[in-house]
Nucleic acid binder design. Structure first.
Lengths: 165, 165
DNA sequence: CAAGATAGTATGTCAAACAGATCATCGTGC
DNA sequence: GCACGATGATCTGTTTGACATACTATCTTG
């Protein structure tokens, strides 16, 4: 707080004056706008990409878990995965440990698509955070990660080191 | 990068591993969830609150400007302001400098409502960033402000110090 | 002054999200 | 072992909300 006193008030972005909701919304909008070119070809758009990303983790990636993490309704989840499956990006596999659940598994094609999309998304992210230095961007990401990390995804049911639960 | 080497990889939130879109989405979702109790009574919900906030700045708050800042379609803006006006929170005033434009002006009731809502929103924000210390939260906010500050709202048409352009 | 651009509004259309029901399976308590 | 409630997934139907479109009034530029 002390180091800002010699800067004109209007020129300084006063942290307390920023509405978190507005700022987050603006940033997410900018991100989605920039990412449009990357994810628009994917079925499901941004959410399709996110589902692929989570499926790539290969841990407890049944539909309910993914839906919970992404804040997607489970009925919506069904046709998002439908579209990804039709496009050959993922397959549904019954969870051996719970025959109600369907694991979402990346196909080879899905993995390749995700790989190139991820690389381009990293570029997009760098551009969106372009107003920050590299160190500041890392700091921002790590703070963001800590803020969102407090519901650390119940992996209690996922014993074993295998990529599939 | 160097200071994380002595920490187990899984326990450390690796900044580079976090998908910016996912993290921002999750955080915004959490924020909206927490803010629901505050803004649900307002016409337009979260966006109604944001419109009130911008109207309270009293500078260049015509509908197009507000819509641009919030990423809202102008046809949607119309009925959002309609609802706020019906609720007696704002009034529409023709911009003396541009008779096409309508300035969105807070009423007394709108100001009071915004005041109490803002106070409660500040609480919500503190809760959402609760995983961070106060200093870290300030840091996060200032980084966020800088990231989103690069389109600094064209005030060239707004000469004069008056609260109404 | 003419022509194009922009602010705001009204209207029609359509997709995307939600609610609810259904079925299969799991977990728990008895 | 079995009855019961809870949960994962899917399907269906409904509706809200956003968008495209069109229109008027006004500004701006040549």
């Amino acid at each position: 707080m002390t180091q800002v006193n010699d800067v004109p008030v209007q020129a300084q972005a006063r942290a307390a004056d920023v509405d978190l909701g507005q700022a987050l919304g603006a940033l997410l909008r900018r991100y989605l706008e920039s990412a449009r070119g990357v994810v628009d070809q994917l079925p499901g758009g941004p959410r399709g990409f996110q589902i692929l990303s989570i499926a790539a983790e290969g841990v407890c990636s049944n539909q309910a878990t993914i839906a919970l993490r992404l804040g997607i309704d489970r009925t919506v989840m069904t046709y998002l995965v439908d579209d990804l499956e039709k496009a050959g990006m993922v397959t549904r596999r019954p969870d051996p440990a719970d025959r109600r659940a369907r694991q979402v598994v990346l196909t080879g094609k899905g993995g390749k698509t995700l790989g190139s999309a991820s690389a381009r998304i990293r570029e997009v992210e760098r551009g969106v955070l372009g107003a920050l230095t590299d160190d500041e961007a890392d700091l921002f990401r790590s703070l963001l990660a800590r803020v969102t990390a407090d519901v650390p995804a119940d992996h209690s049911a996922c014993s074993g080191p295998a990529p599939d639960c």
